[in-house]
Design a protein around this nucleic acid. Structure first.
Length: 417
RNA sequence: GGGGGAAUGUCCCGAGCGGCAAAGGGGGCGGACUGUAAAUCCGCUGGCUACGCCUUCGCAGGUUCGAGUCCUGCUUCCCCCA
């Protein structure tokens, strides 16, 4: 199609957010007059969202920022009780209602960093699909909603077909997820005039099924828009670090580690990530992306600080950047490094190096510490630990702290307490 | 209902004559090289009070000096027949 006329779709297009859209022209016209009401659903399967979810939140952000319309972050208090089979080869573990509610509360905070909530026309709102899904009556649902679904067609959807082809179990409860998600779309259309659902490309099937259901049930025209799934240029699935997923919540992943995640971006991903995960103007991004060789590290630092500022706050991002600078470029101690305190008395009588590294949380067991010593992976005050029998006392403290390092990137400070 | 097969190191896949802390991958971690990148090469990838001890092969028993390996029962999954 020709270039979009709305700022919303123009920005999404040039920044690489768009994977598929059910009707670009139609959506563009709607966005141009500020008439979009878009939602993204978030299931409450964990106590924090991770970077994979960030793309869709960014799309909502841009929509609000460009005045294209109203964002809705739908909490999946109801759908989480069922479990989405999309992109999974195994049935999800069924979560307890208590866990779901606890997760839901923990997720909410992050949205406010990127969206403005309130009562106004383009202010974001956060409903929960438990409000209507838990009230559904089975027979009524079959008559009103179920009759619009063709099982023949459902069997051809990727999420279902993959399980069948691989002869992997697909339980009836999961088979119903698609129906509930489709119904959400219709319900949101009726309640809030929602007309667009966005999500990752793995959600395409569920979303267009909702568009279809809307037509059959007589809503206004609905639209579908998906973003690509996040992978690194070397093909690895993204969003995982040593410690696990890259969580957006600070209590799940420290600010310093979050910053480091972005700092360690592969060269080939820098430009793409700057467009997706920062709000920097395109001209600035083009300048940074043009850097070659070692200079690209400058771009990575900008990416790390901007991306961290967006989710964790500007001051926190700069603190992480400062700590990284001290730690890596000056070999000094950053203020932001994790600190572990050890009772002074214990330190006075001496602690084995191995158990000290375990205490610091850098390694899981004495055995692992021992192996890492053999591999030269542990450092105390920047000196490689060579003797697994060594004992550490308060003499190891420099200005009250000792620095333990695991590999070149993981550091912990030890203090007497 | 009848018959046949499967479950292995709590990340995954997967070998395993009765002597096994258990082959080989993948993934992950560490080292070298670099730019806190990628690629490549090397090492590690049950626990401990550590030349020894303890716990691991779906669950529970049994045979044996000794069981992941053999026998019995149970659980779960898959295939074929009805």
């Amino acid at each position: 199609m020709t270039a979009p006329s709305s700022d919303f779709l123009r920005i999404l297009t040039e920044r690489g957010f768009i994977h598929q859209c059910s009707d670009m022209q139609g959506l563009d016209a709607l966005a141009a007059k500020g008439g979009v009401v878009a939602y993204v659903g978030y299931d409450c399967t964990a106590p924090s969202l991770h970077v994979g979810h960030l793309l869709s939140i960014m799309m909502l952000h841009w929509m609000q920022a460009t005045g294209a319309g109203k964002p809705i972050t739908l909490m999946g208090g109801g759908t989480t009780r069922v479990g989405d089979p999309s992109g999974r080869d195994e049935t999800r573990k069924i979560l307890s209602i208590d866990d779901i509610n606890a997760n839901k509360d923990a997720l909410k905070g992050v949205f406010a960093k990127l969206l403005t909530f309130g009562e106004g026309k383009t202010d974001a709102i956060m409903p929960d699909n438990a409000e209507w899904l838990t009230r559904l009556n089975y027979i009524e649902m079959l008559r009103d909603i179920g009759r619009h679904f063709s099982v023949n067609r459902m069997m051809t959807m990727d999420s279902v077909r993959m399980r069948l082809e691989r002869e992997q179990e697909l339980s009836f409860i999961e088979f119903n997820y698609m129906i509930l998600q489709s119904y959400d779309f219709v319900e949101l259309a009726r309640r809030y005039g929602t007309n667009l659902q966005m999500g990752g490309s793995d959600q395409w099937g569920n979303i267009v099924t909702g568009v279809d259901l809307g037509r059959r049930m007589g809503t206004h025209q609905l639209y579908a828009l998906t973003c690509p799934l996040l992978t690194t240029s070397s093909g690895a699935k993204m969003g995982k670090t040593a410690a696990g997923a890259v969580w957006l919540n600070a209590d799940m992943l420290s600010n310093y580690d979050y910053w480091q995640f972005w700092r360690n971006t592969e060269d080939g991903d820098v430009a793409r990530f700057l467009k997706l995960f920062t709000l920097l103007p395109m001209a600035e991004i083009d300048r940074l992306a043009a850097l070659q060789g070692a200079e690209i590290n400058e771009a990575k630092k900008v990416l790390a600080t901007e991306a961290t500022a967006l989710v964790r706050g500007r001051d926190v991002a700069e603190a992480a950047a400062a700590t990284a600078k001290k730690t890596f470029e000056q070999g000094a101690l950053g203020d932001d490094l994790p600190v572990v305190t050890v009772p002074a008395a214990e330190l006075a009588s001496g602690i084995g190096v191995l158990s000290l590294f375990v205490r610091a949380g850098l390694v899981a067991s004495n055995g692992e510490a021992r192996r890492q010593v053999q591999g030269g992976g542990l450092k105390l005050n920047d000196e490689t630990v060579t003797d697994a029998q060594a004992v550490v006392t308060e003499k190891a403290l420099r200005d009250g702290v000792a620095k333990l390092s695991f590999g070149r990137k993981k550091h912990v400070l030890v203090k007497a307490g």
